[in-house]
Amino acid sequence: MEEDFEALLLSVQSGPLEDPPWSGLVARLRARLGCNFANLIFRRAGADPATGIEVHDASAPPAWLWDRYRERFASADPIPYFAMQPGRVYAYEELDGIAAKERDDFREDFLRAADFEHFLIFRVAEPGGCNIWVTVTRPAAAAPFGVDDRDLCARLAHMLVPALACYAALLARATETQVYRRAADLLSFGVVTLDAEGRIVGIDDAARRWIGGAGGLAVRGDRLLASESRVDLPARIAAALASGEGEAIHLGDADGIDLLLVPLAARADAGPRAVRLMLYLSGRRAPQRDYSAHVAALFGLSDTQARLAMLLANGFTLAEAAAEIGITEQTARTYSKDIYSRTGTARQGELIQRILTSVAVLD
């Protein structure tokens, strides 16, 4: 039995890294307790229930089961999830308000209809507001849950507290990463991460837009090369890693790509593929997303003027921008005067700052 519990404990610990989280634990717990159904619900306090995560493992539930729940009980689930005391294991009839019901439609028309006769549930909570509820059921033909079953669930509830805190921290870091990537994308920066040997660890979406293009950046195996430039990029990366000093590199004017190599300090707890160098890149290229409608509304420009303003803000010359949107250079010059006037700028550098730091590009 202790070997079984050790397997459950390993599932608790590895659960935050699974997709969906704790799916291994749910399956093992159902098998360990001889259940016909087990599920885990993850939800933040105050969040829309639809934004939660549910993982379940069942032995051939009726096909109509989830449709019935969504139609009749999703908005009126009688289980008082947030009123449950964290760490306590409840039978269904022990939940607040259940025993006082004259008729329990949820029990009769859902639980018993699905043969979820014997029922245990417990809640796990962490200080940041994340919660887990674990439910297990047995059919009417099986023995009710006993003291040992409750004790096992209580032990798991205790073990899940630090695991849930880790999962909440991972979610927070993932959200921060998305924000930083979004900010870098808005500023037309891409990021490539490399390890201590100069091998690629990751490439974000913004960086991929320049790799393989006219600027000559290319990936060969796990290395980043400047194939259309005289720059020996792997050698420059190796030098930056060896010296610990950052370096800015201009690859040429074909696509206006510039690089910044930023070595990171080594950490004693980092593995062999840990990120040791951040390679930031930017390039002059037509914007991947069209913010011209926002620019037009914000500065009172026509649609064509707004498109021209966006191209100028992304580093295009007047002639290049005119060709990109299909107008003559003279027309573009006339439009640019109105653009500078309406944005309160006098030259392209000021226009770049005015537009790229405005709310127009935040959508």
Rank of each mutant, 00 (worst) to 15 (best):
53 I>F: 05
294 H>R: 15
15 G>K: 02
192 V>F: 05
154 A>H: 13
171 L>Y: 03
204 D>P: 00
17 L>H: 13
141 A>H: 07
331 T>C: 06
288 Q>H: 13
37 F>H: 15
302 S>F: 01
61 P>Y: 08
113 A>H: 04
5 F>I: 07
318 L>R: 12
205 D>V: 04
118 H>T: 06
87 G>Y: 02
356 L>P: 01
277 L>V: 04
101 K>S: 06
337 K>Q: 13
55 V>F: 03
272 P>L: 00
25 L>S: 07
309 A>Q: 08
192 V>I: 09
351 L>T: 10
302 S>N: 01
16 P>E: 05
156 L>S: 02
66 W>K: 09
161 V>G: 05
241 L>G: 03
352 I>L: 11
4 D>G: 11
21 P>V: 08
91 A>P: 00
342 R>T: 11
2 E>N: 11
22 W>L: 10
308 L>Q: 07
222 D>H: 13
318 L>T: 10
111 L>Q: 10
88 R>K: 14
128 G>L: 08
165 A>F: 02
241 L>S: 03
246 G>Y: 07
190 G>F: 08
255 D>H: 07
120 L>P: 02
204 D>S: 00
68 R>W: 04
223 R>F: 01
307 R>M: 04
300 G>M: 01
162 P>F: 02
220 R>P: 10
65 L>I: 10
213 G>Y: 04
274 A>F: 02
281 L>P: 00
127 P>M: 05
228 E>A: 15
167 Y>R: 11
82 F>T: 03
236 R>H: 13
285 R>C: 04
60 A>Q: 14
321 A>Q: 07
158 H>N: 11
341 S>T: 06
41 I>S: 09
131 N>W: 05
105 D>I: 07
76 A>C: 13
76 A>N: 15
142 A>I: 00
84 M>G: 01
21 P>M: 06
259 L>W: 04
26 V>W: 02
115 D>N: 11
362 L>G: 02
87 G>E: 09
340 Y>C: 03
299 F>M: 05
164 L>W: 05
179 V>L: 13
323 A>E: 14
139 P>D: 13
315 G>H: 07
187 L>F: 07
254 A>I: 11
196 A>C: 13
163 A>P: 14
103 R>F: 15
229 S>I: 01
303 D>A: 15
156 L>K: 10
42 F>P: 00
215 G>D: 05
161 V>I: 13
43 R>W: 09
198 G>W: 10
148 D>T: 12
349 G>H: 08
18 E>R: 07
114 A>I: 04
145 F>P: 02
216 G>W: 03
334 T>H: 14
353 Q>C: 06
152 L>Q: 12
276 R>D: 10
131 N>D: 06
266 A>M: 07
300 G>K: 00
11 S>T: 12
90 Y>S: 01
226 A>N: 06
65 L>C: 10
250 H>L: 10
302 S>C: 01
256 G>P: 13
51 T>S: 14
167 Y>G: 03
112 R>E: 15
319 A>M: 00
348 Q>V: 04
257 I>C: 03
305 Q>E: 15
138 R>W: 02
271 G>E: 09
42 F>V: 13
322 A>S: 02
285 R>P: 00
109 D>T: 04
226 A>H: 05
99 A>H: 09
354 R>H: 02
